[in-house]
Each structure stands twice: as structure tokens, then as C-alpha cells.
Design a protein around this nucleic acid. Structure first.
Lengths: 296, 296
DNA sequence: GTTTGTTATTTTATCTACAATAGACAGTTT
DNA sequence: AAACTGTCTATTGTAGATAAAATAACAAAC
């Protein structure tokens, strides 16, 4: 089946929500940049819109005929790219299923399980290996190193190093740097969440990611920013499977973020470092608590 | 042509040098662990040794008939794995050839150029992308970010952070830790090289890598150790194409290493940090000097 | 009890093929 | 002439096939 047309399907769905608002459709080129796809794909989308009689399309006249309906959309499973599917399957396997460190990972078996070719699985594993959770034995299998206490400690050690440096860098940014405005916006978002924490605490994961990324961006060091991908993926899946006390934990974390933001605004190195350390310490505790002790 | 049999060829060559020393050959299993290959490959090697009438092989009697000759070996090109070939080609292209930052990288073109399938090139690029020199545009080409001054600065920033931490960790190792013995050995190697620097300065690159890796190992943090791969590859190719004043540079670096080693042995944090900073500063200078200024 | 012969099976590394997608160029419309 | 569209080509993403290499099993030989 060569390539899946998930780019088309996903863009088609996004196009439906887009045109629900407006009357007339823009040019093919413009639509392309709007949706982030090439003209080829735009034309495929227009063709389908016409086929479903949502628009009338003749050359440059594209008139709305009717509003899009739920049935017009492609289902969510169809729009996720193969890489996303593989990542989810893999993470479920190694985190949820009793995956022991040292376990062998088999490309063929994984591929069969997920229902894809081996090529995609292989490429995923290569990409994923930079997270330090798996390791390749050439001409042989991959080895799962496991989400162990050691992993968490090594990860947080680097995180703390990087974030202290980034935070110091942030505080030293010139006053007219756009990051300060982003920080203000971030503060508002945090206050909003704190005011409605009972209903909104589940959204913290995403806010957390955005906040730390903002801090790291100021370092303008690609290695620091790239490393944050590892943090993101670990915490993302970690939040999904460890929900114990999450309301309290997240409320506390939002407060720490606000203290951290206030510290950044003082621009005083010692204050910043203190707030940063404080928050990272509790983040580490949370992570460690969720990991089963290997031999306790 | 599916898989190249480079594992066999390379192991065969190593086997030839191995048996040149000894009279009798060990068991198949033992030979396998010695060469780091499976019994299947060992038997293929033995079969070829017999065919060339280098040994007489009948069951468990494996007697040497004659010493291996240069003609018996596979040529060097034949034994390098596809990944190595691709890496070399690629580095030559992007470092030697006038590769501008922002240039597009084309999988198909690269593959045709090197004479391999696209899969291998693709996998190489994915693996290589973690070095921060290239970036993928999904469904489209790769972009060369280039070996620029910014890259070098970002790289060395992390390097200095990591190495200072590793060096401090090294100095704090217990006195009976095997790393101290390794450090003694390392010191001897450095003194040897310094004594014959005029003839040996070209070997510094390898010694440099081994020394810093020894220091980093003490961190026992996989992210620090992995990051050193980037340093290694950058400096490896950097040494290859920038030979200006290399004798003086390397002589100076060996001396700095010796000071660094002496500092580690004092186990005094301030002394260690000072020597470490000193050496890293001149390493950075060397690297920066070799990079063309973007607009000077 | 270790080593080998034998044989079979499994898995990886690599190539090739093809649909999806991107992108280029020339022709058309306003 | 600027913006848009029709058409075509080139490249990527993915599946599937195949040789090399690993792994396994077990009886026979030493």
C-alpha cells in the first residue's frame, strides 16, 4: 500500500473546520500554506469537497454549497500518521506491559503486532534510540534498557543542569525581548488554570511543556532545546499512566511555576536559581515516586 | 543484493591476524566470542580458511598449514559496513564540498551517488540528525544546517558543562576505582607521545578521544556519554580536513592533557576545574579558527 | 561434558517497487 | 503583469522480498 494518505485526510479534516467559518475559499496556493500542505494535496481536498457536494468548484470559483457535517470528517484513527501509531503502540508495550529491563525487542514481531511494515518500525526505533531507553546490538536485536530509577536520575541530572542555565539566560534577556511578553501570557494562563484547578488540572501537562520550552528557547542552544524532547515524551507518557494524586500534584506545580515566573521577572540570578531548583526538585520527586523500586 | 557479507569479511580478516600468532585454533564457539560473531559466521570463516589451504580442518582438528599472506585478506573497502561508507561519503560532501547552510539534501541523489539503496541512506540521515547538523522537513527534503560558528559554539557550550561535571565526578571517585589505573595508563601513553611528538602527532586524535571518554565515563550518565559521540565525530572529521599547524596544536594539547591528568590526581575540585577549563578553552579556539566566518 | 555436524528457523540489513506528496513550469484568467 | 490553475516530474514514505547472519536444537563424536 506504499504511502498512507494521512496527510491528505488530516488536512481535509482541518480544511472542513476552516471553511465552516468562511463563505468563499481562497486560492489553491493560499489554502496550501494555510493547511501546511502542497498544492497537489489541496487539489485532492478540493476534489473531495466537490464530490461530497460541499462546494461547487470550477477553476477559480469555489462556492460553499452546504455546511460540513460530522459524517464528512475522516475518523481520528485514519488521520494519525504511522509514526504516531507506532510510538503509541511501542510506549504502551514498554511502559504498561510488564516490560523488564534487558528484554529483547524484535522488529518483525513489533511490526506484525502493530500491523505495519518493518521499515517503519525500524526507523522509529532508530529515532527513538536517542532517548536512551533502548540500545541496538548490530546484526541482532534491540535491548530495552527500561524506564528505571537510574534512567530517571540521569535524565533529571541533565535537565537540572540545562534548565538552570536556560533560566539564568532568560533572566539576562534584554527588556524588549519578545520572550518577556510570552512570559506574561504564560503567567495569565497559569492564573486561569489555578482559579479553576478542579476542572482544569488535567490540562497541566500541556501547559507544563509549553512553559519549560519557553524557558529553554532562551538558551538558543539546539542541544538544550532538542534534549527537551526527551523530557517531553517521558513526562507525557508518565502523566498518562500515573494519575495518583494528580489534582494535588498539578495544583502544587502550577503554584511553583508562578513562583518561578515571578523569580524570572526579578531578573536576580540567585532568586531565579532558587525558584528553578525548587520546582525541579519536586518534579524529580514526582517522577521517582512513580517508578517501582527494582529491589526493595 | 540484500545484505552485504561485510561481517564475514571483516571477521575473516581479523581472524587471519589472530591465527598468525598462534599454532592451534580454538573451538568454534570460542572463536566466535573472540571475533564477536556467531557460530554460523565462524564456520564460514573456517570453510574459507580450508579452501585457501591455510588450515587443515577436520572436525575438531584445525592445524595451521601456512602463514596467512597479504593476498589472503579482503581489501579494506570490502570490509567496511555500508553505514561507514555512507557516513564517509556524506561527511566529505558536506564538509569538503562547498556545502552552504540551508542547502537541501536529497535522499535519492545521495543514494545514487554513493551507489546504495535509499533505505540505508535514509536510516543514516535519521541517525545522523541527532547531531544537530541536519533537519527533516516531513514529506520533503532534509535541510543542511551547516557546520557554522553557531553550531561550534552551541556544541562547545554543552561540552564544557558536561566535562566540568564529569571531571569533578572523576576526582571524587573512590581511590580503588579502576578508572585511576586507566588514568595512569593514559598518562604513560601521553608521555610516550610527547617524547616522540614529531613522528606521532598524527595519532593524537585517537588518544584525545580515548582520554575524554575516560573522563566522561565516570559520570555514569548515559546522556553525557552519548553526547560525546557528537564531539567525537565533529573532531574526527575536523582533524582530517584542518591540518594547519597540527604538529604544534597537538603538542600543546598533549601537554594540556598531562596538566589535566595531574590536576585530576590532586583530587582538588578547584585545581581540576581550572585545568579542565584551560584545556577546553584552547580546544574551542582551535575549532573556531577552522570555521570560515559567515560574513567577515 | 565439551565440541562439532547438521539442519532448520528466525531475524536483521538491504534492495526494489509504488502510491502519496511536494514542487516546477507553462498556460490561463483577471 | 500578477495571480491562479492544469499538467507533469521528482522525491518521499512504506510495503514486501531476499541474502546474510544470528539463534536454536540435538544427536554424534571425542
Amino acid at each position: 500500500m506504499a504511502k498512507q494518505n494521512t496527510v491528505f485526510k488530516d488536512a481535509f479534516n482541518r480544511c472542513l473546520t476552516l471553511i465552516a467559518e468562511t463563505e468563499a475559499l481562497p486560492s489553491e496556493l493560499e489554502l496550501g500554506t494555510l493547511l501546511g500542505v502542497s498544492r497537489t494535496t489541496v487539489r485532492a481536498i478540493l476534489a473531495r469537497l466537490k464530490e461530497l457536494e460541499i462546494i461547487a468548484w470550477d477553476k477559480r470559483t469555489k462556492a460553499m454549497l452546504r455546511a460540513p457535517q460530522p459524517a464528512d470528517f475522516f475518523s481520528a484513527e485514519e488521520t494519525s500518521s504511522l509514526a504516531e501509531i507506532i510510538e503509541r503502540s511501542f510506549m504502551r508495550r514498554i511502559l504498561a506491559g510488564g516490560a523488564e529491563p534487558g528484554m529483547q525487542i524484535n522488529e518483525l514481531e513489533l511490526a506484525r503486532d502493530i500491523g505495519t511494515g518493518t521499515t517503519s518500525v525500524r526507523e522509529f526505533l532508530i529515532r527513538f534510540s536517542r532517548f536512551g531507553l533502548i540500545e541496538k546490538r548490530p546484526n541482532s536485536h534491540w535491548v530495552l534498557k527500561g524506564f528505571t530509577r537510574d534512567f530517571a536520575l540521569e535524565l533529571t541530572e541533565i535537565r537540572e543542569m540545562f534548565e538552570l542555565r536556560s533560566a539564568a539566560g532568560f533572566a539576562a534577556l534584554p527588556g524588549d525581548h519578545p520572550a518577556w511578553r510570552d512570559l506574561d501570557d504564560m503567567e495569565v494562563l497559569h492564573r486561569d488554570m489555578l482559579a479553576n484547578i478542579d476542572t482544569r488540572y488535567r490540562d497541566f501537562s500541556e501547559l507544563d511543556e509549553r512553559f519549560h520550552l519557553l524557558v529553554h528557547r532562551s538558551s538558543s542552544n539546539r542541544f538544550i532545546i532538542d534534549f527537551y524532547d526527551i523530557i517531553t515524551i517521558v513526562f507525557h507518557y508518565h502523566y498518562q499512566w500515573n494519575k495518583a494524586n494528580d489534582r494535588e500534584r498539578n495544583a502544587r506545580a502550577v503554584e511553583e511555576h508562578l513562583e518561578y515566573i515571578a523569580a524570572l521577572k526579578t531578573r536576580d540570578p540567585a532568586t531565579v536559581a532558587h525558584a528553578c531548583r525548587q520546582h525541579l526538585r519536586s518534579a524529580r520527586e514526582t517522577l521517582l515516586q512513580s517508578i517501582q523500586q527494582p529491589d526493595a
